[in-house]
Amino acid sequence: MGLFTELKDSISRAASTLFSEEDPKRIGIYGPPNAGKTTLANRIARDWTGDAVGPESHIPHETRRARRKENVEIERDGKKVTIDIVDTPGVTTKVDYTEFLEHDMEKDDAVRRSREATEGVAEAMHWLREDVDGVIYVLDSTEDPFTQVNTMLIGIIESQDLPVLILANKIDLEESSVQRIRNAFPQHETTELSALEGDNMDEVYDQIAEYFG
């Protein structure tokens, strides 16, 4: 091979790594405490990478640090979509450690959990302003979606023009109402699922590929 073609070759190789392999989009999983964000993150990670992201719990504020799972390759119709998923602590405007005492926790542990929770929420807000390219907003469909935290967060996401996919989780439960969520956020499409049971995950992956691909 002549020097010239060799040079041309290495330039085009460099160019292809520069331009075609763009960084995977960072998708933040947001929503109120206990909505099922980690359960969803774990399901996505297990389905496509084989391992989990973090612990799930019925006690709110289980996730107190944002956790990133990198290079999750999701395949849809022969096309590959690569994303980083960021499981975030549930967002709230208040944390009262005495509520953890009801879950059989010692005061020391409850106070520590609440301190970590507040740091986690602050961190989640920071990620939302600076470090995510898209949002999966998870809601517990057995709960009233019409809360100030949800309204504010959706407003913050919209103001940054981030693509957002709203998920109505826990449809396996009898009290679930997906329509209530659709009514609360009519400007966005809502997809229903059970992250715990794995119901309707195919549609969730279709939507992820469409929104963030």
Binding site: V121, A122, M152, G155, I156
Partner: peptide, 9 residues
């Protein structure tokens, strides 16, 4: 929205 985000933080 940005002010709300910082207020929460």
């Amino acid at each position: 929205p940005d002010e709300e985000s910082r207020l929460i933080e």
